[in-house]
Design a protein around this nucleic acid. Structure first.
Lengths: 186, 186
DNA sequence: CCTGAAGACTTCAACAGTAAAGTTCGAAGC
DNA sequence: GCTTCGAACTTTACTGTTGAAGTCTTCAGG
């Protein structure tokens, strides 16, 4: 008669409040206000990434590919960047960019050609199809993002954006080098 | 005479304001307030992950391993969870957990044993060394987190935490299943 | 010119993650 | 009590990323 009454019982994800309480229990020197900001930030970001992944998947574009499209579009006309730049902006190694561009060029989302003025350089350029894919993804993302903030008034949204921008300014001037790999993390 | 005056000139990372302006330029149907919240959130989160990675690396613990330690500690005494639970909490597949636990058991951070009451189950338990590593990492992380919010008053911190918690509540009840892989993304 | 140094990308080997198939044990029915 | 089903973990094959080494081009001197 298997009993396992308490060792195998509570699997579910803890709520934010439970998580903060657990931190307090296990590590006393912790400001609960700070921890609430950090934990909530991480959890919201994680949910966003999951949602983006589901949406882009319906377009036949991976999340990784969407990132490349985004960087190219945001660079503005003529939607060209080098592999090195792209790698820096996405926070991954040049080697990884080489392979990503291979795939995306094969799918017709970008083109890759050598710069004729400087044959060491390579130019990655967004195709029309790539731009269309990005626009479709953005349409879906903007709906999701609007929904995300639905419980906040316009004033609260502005306040939240301003507070986050101030935090960002702090951390960006503390360690100005954007570089640094990141693998996962919630 | 190589010229390349404008094609190879501007590589640097755009600022938050520049990024939002680029979004407006490329995609008109976008609420700049919403986009500021989303973009700032993503960028802060990314910087945090890079910072955590650097800190844990100095302890000889990878970011991925730190995540496992965190889940075990927050589960409370006796610091035991199954691979399946861990996988769910960290948002990765059971197969990945098997390998992570292999490594971490080899390093003495956790132990792995079969549950004698139900031999299908496996119990992963934090070792004393694992708990010490987590505490060291937390000491460093709490200093960083405190610094992150240094420009905000206590009142502003509370407000930020509350607004984020409300956003989190919204997204968690919208899609209640925490599951969902995530690979990278900024 | 020719050589050396530096830059930009690519290639290679090792490693971490996913998806799907495989294994083992426990529980329910006949 | 034998069989079947399902749960929990592991194994296998493959994809994607890293870090280091390699290639090719440009630039600066001798």
């Amino acid at each position: 008669m298997p009993d396992n009454s308490d060792l195998t019982s509570a699997p579910a994800e803890p709520s934010l409040q439970e998580q903060i309480a657990a931190y307090q229990r296990e590590f006393q020197d912790l400001d609960p206000q700070v921890e609430q900001v950090v934990s909530a930030l991480q959890r919201v970001n994680r949910r966003m990434n999951v949602a983006y992944g589901r949406q882009t998947a319906t377009l036949g574009v991976s999340n990784a590919e969407w990132e490349v499209l985004k960087a190219l579009v945001l660079s503005g006309e003529p939607y060209r960047l080098g592999p090195g730049d792209l790698a820096k902006r996405l926070g991954l190694t040049p080697a990884a960019m080489t392979h990503r561009i291979d795939r995306m060029a094969g799918e017709g989302l970008v083109t890759r050609e050598r710069d004729e003025n400087n044959r060491v350089r390579v130019i990655v350029e967004l195709t029309h199809e790539g731009r269309e894919k990005w626009l479709e993804a953005m349409r879906m993302a903007s709906v999701f993002e609007e929904d995300l903030l639905q419980d906040l008034s316009a004033e609260e949204r502005g306040l939240l954006g301003e507070l986050l921008a101030r935090v960002l300014r702090r951390v960006e001037e503390d360690q100005p080098d954007a570089g640094g790999r990141l693998t996962d993390l919630d």
